[in-house]
Amino acid sequence: MREHLKSCAQAVLDGESEIAEELARLTLEKKMDLLEVIENGFVAGIREVGKLWEEGILFLPELVMGAEAMKAAMELLQPALETEGSDREKVGHVVIGTIEGDIHDIGKTLVATMLSANGFKITDLGADVPAVRFVDEAEKNDADCIAISALLTTTMPGQKKVIEELDKRSMRSRVKVMVGGAPCDEKWAAEIGADGYAGDAVAAVSLARSLTGRG
């Protein structure tokens, strides 16, 4: 088992999606402890990837490939986990998108990839998303958190609209809101009553963890 866990972590660290998938399949075949493999294998790998990236040792393509390998493994393990009814502490669900009128989506997609790799369930609405849709999707998916990206001065106010919409539907207490993108900062987040701001994708993961207590 220890060897297996190490291989799982290594596959994520190396960004090898095919190997990660193979190891996930083996996990299922041999009926190994799913929670154990996820937590101490794959998740350990992705945490290491994030750490090495923050330390400047790994570069973005390696970070993203690691996240992709993680996703590939989880796609096989997640359904099994659910049928097994295993209570891996409920994962956080984040609805993410770039706000209406804004088509900048590179940063948003990076954030989504990293969140997903770190165990969050992601509903990615893409770019140019109306405020109401964020809230609709959060309601539909019973999401814990809405993450809104805005790269333009003209579209920033849309982030506030999402919060107003949450208020209107009395959902604000249930759903955390985090914001990001070049024109945003801590001050803006505070001004519009968001729960947090993060400046990059790895910081966004820590923020989401602390906001939702999950992931």
Partner: peptide, 15 residues
Amino acid sequence: IIYGGSPACFDMKKG
């Protein structure tokens, strides 16, 4: 019309 741009050599460390 003007042939222009603002490309960048994307920084793989900082994104």
